[in-house]
Amino acid sequence: MKRILGIDCSPKVEKVVSGLFGGNDDVQYEQFHDGIALNGYQMIILEMGRNQEHVVQQICKLRYACNFQNIPIILINARKKDIPSQPYIIAGATEVLSLSDPLPACRHIMNGYLIPGREPLEEEFEYLDPFIKNTCHILQTMASIHVEFKKVYFSNTIRIFGDVSGIMGLSGNAEGTLVVTFYWDLAKSIVAKMMGMEEGEIDAELIHDGVSEIINMISGSTKKEFVGTPYHFEISLPSVVVGPGHQIGYLQNTSVAVLIFQVGTQSFALHVCIKPKTTLS
């Protein structure tokens, strides 16, 4: 049984949602509040209010509370007026549905998002483990912080939720992309520790440079471990993207492993998309 959380849902929307899931799932309802806990839920349903800016802020806070977990956020428009979905998708909504849409189509879409992602294959950890180990080691060494690896899931989307991402292109025996993504507050804290400065002294330029250096060090240290294997890659110059809901280009027909790490109560993600040109023997 899936656990679904409905937020700020009117009786009208609650009735429709109950009909969509037919009592086969555990649907709970509560009002939106700061600090809302989303762990254990497989889907979030939020009814759209009339104030776009307020709804966008709600979605941003909900996406932050997901801690980079792949929890779909479904925004329900209960009004007949057609509403542009782009601002809400950029903020972090997975889908924007309307009660005027055909209910069978809505049911199909929502049930599709409840299909669990596949677990990593044992052989996939042959290339994921070095990234996990080196990410923890680099931040422990450079910033004196304890980093704990929490989980991994696979994604086929190019959307990244976070405020700032360091990107490294991979080429050579293996090709792909490596991306580390932080929310702003954690990025500022880590960069301050790396540079031996107070957080108040860290500006956007220093965060940009610090995140660039983090992805460069993770890539460089992991590259050494793949020498002599089909996963050995060369690295390019890192780049940095800033802004919520940004998109990263990946190789076609190649899954993206999203590794979630925790620092205290905050999380960040490492996106690993790598494809060897030859297979492991």
Rank of each mutant, 00 (worst) to 15 (best):
G169V: 08
S236A: 10
Y153E: 09
T177D: 03
D163I: 13
V180G: 13
T177G: 03
S239A: 14
P238V: 07
G169P: 04
F233S: 00
L206K: 04
T229Y: 04
L186S: 07
E201I: 04
V152N: 02
V180S: 12
L178N: 03
S221K: 01
R159S: 15
I214P: 05
G172M: 11
L206A: 11
F154L: 12
D203W: 12
R159G: 11
H246Q: 11
P230Y: 06
V242P: 05
I190D: 09
I218A: 04
S219N: 06
G162S: 11
D209H: 13
S239H: 12
T181D: 02
M195L: 15
P238Q: 10
A174S: 15
T181N: 13
I235T: 15
E213Q: 05
P244L: 02
M194T: 13
S236F: 13
I190G: 09
G166H: 06
V242E: 15
G210M: 04
I190C: 05
F226T: 02
I218K: 00
L178K: 00
K193F: 01
G172T: 06
A187P: 08
V180T: 12
D163H: 07
S236H: 05
H208D: 13
Y153Q: 01
S165L: 13
T181W: 00
F233R: 00
M195W: 08
G169F: 14
G196Q: 09
S239F: 13
T229G: 06
L206M: 08
G243P: 04
N173F: 03
L237P: 03
P238K: 07
L170N: 00
P238F: 10
S155C: 05
G210D: 01
S239L: 12
T222W: 00
V191T: 10
V227Q: 01
I214K: 09
F233E: 04
I202M: 11
Y231R: 01
G169H: 15
I160W: 02
V152F: 08
Y183N: 12
N156V: 15
G166E: 14
Y183R: 07
F182L: 09
K224I: 03
V242D: 10
I158N: 10
L178G: 02
L170Q: 03
F161D: 04
P244C: 02
S221W: 01
